[in-house]
Design a protein around this nucleic acid. Structure first.
Lengths: 215, 215
DNA sequence: ATACTGTTTAACAATTTTGTTAAACATCAA
DNA sequence: TTGATGTTTAACAAAATTGTTAAACAGTAT
């Protein structure tokens, strides 16, 4: 049945995503994935041929989704600071959903350097190029200290992504519950803006839902 | 022979470190480790009983080494900005030697949450507590925008560690050779200081070797 | 030389994990 | 009902990986 087929396939992908990118079990076995989805392990091979291919599909789809989300913000014609605020919100929010996605890619590319091209192939334009002019303008106007677009974007990614990657460690060191950690990450959105611009994030941008509507 | 014993054991640990923490092959097999060291695989069991126990030893030793390096800077009585400059230099330099150490811990703790305690057990004092007073003073004097010690330290770790973790991806996106990437990371030391303090890193602190001598 | 110690090796056993296959099952159309 | 199609399952085979063991080896002291 067509609808059922789509359902099972989707179910497997969804549960695999949770294991890989949410729980960080980057070497989850086909059995574990099948268990999580409550289906027979052979179905993974039925739908995806091999564990390898399932992973490729999964990464491709997930990355595309994230990149589109993020890219649309950078190419928008919002004023620079609003744009960056949106970017921070999107990155942190996406990271809250799939904290281990970046970690997964880092591990995969270390193991299989030849696959880096696959992950990066879709990005014909470097994200640092998308903010080059606006950043230059900001610097020229003395609104921000001199910095290259590359370092600026690395700073931004680092500040947003690292606390998500290091979740378990940070949570333990500071003795935070899951709720407290989520709160900490939401605080961070404003902290990051302040760190980058040395200035308070405008109140009307501080709420994710609102910023979404601005696009 | 006593000296030989020490040699082989050390050799295995050294090569395992390279595989795990330098090359990022976080699921390297005992065979791969043995090959890298040019010894028989059974020796790993002879010296460490199991792969598991070797890993534990390795992590314990490596982390202790790094933490001591880093801790000594934070407890020193250097002026705040010099202290942070040293900290940045140390973190980036250590990361250049073992770029995947953090990534490894992140993956391990995701897989075995019960082990987090082990990794964190030695830290009786949170690093954020070590800079609390100095940071408060800095803020009181209006030398830096208001920020909690926790967020300050997370910012610092993020800015230093993330580019090391994401090495392969960043290198590919920006088409950098290994040499270029190393240069980029050294530039970053000053970029990070500027991002944190919104002010140039003093020239005399910019060189790692010099900062080492100041302790 | 010989016996003793600790080190290293090859061969083996046990386990885990992936991938395959044939049969059972369900749904739908003729 | 029967047959065709696609889905799901259990059972099996193959490969990879860890851990064990007995024997070979090297050096040292007696």
């Amino acid at each position: 049945m067509r609808t059922e087929e789509a359902l099972t396939e989707k179910l497997i992908k969804e549960k695999a995503r949770i294991l890989f990118f949410q729980k960080g079990l980057l070497d989850a076995t086909t059995q574990e994935i099948a268990d999580e989805a409550g289906v027979n392990r052979a179905l993974i091979h039925y739908y995806f041929r091999s564990r390898e291919q399932m992973l490729e599909t999964l990464l491709d789809e997930t990355l595309l989704e994230k990149k589109e989300k993020v890219r649309s913000i950078l190419v928008s014609n919002l004023p620079f600071r609003e744009k960056i605020a949106c970017y921070i919100n999107a990155l942190v929010d996406y990271g809250l959903a799939y904290p281990y996605l970046d970690n997964f890619i880092i591990s995969e590319t270390a193991r299989h350097p030849e696959k880096i091209r696959i992950f990066c192939s879709r990005d014909r334009i470097k994200s640092s190029d998308l903010i080059r002019e606006q950043l230059a303008e900001e610097i020229a106007n003395g609104k921000i200290a001199n910095i290259s677009p590359e370092h600026f974007m690395v700073n931004l990614s680092a500040l947003c992504n690292y606390p998500l990657l290091a979740k378990s460690v940070l949570q333990t060191i500071h003795g935070m519950t899951d709720v407290a950690y989520r709160k900490f990450l939401n605080e961070r959105k404003r902290v990051i803006f302040r760190t980058i611009f040395n200035e308070e994030m405008p109140q009307h941008l501080a709420n994710t839902e609102l910023t979404k509507n601005r696009l």
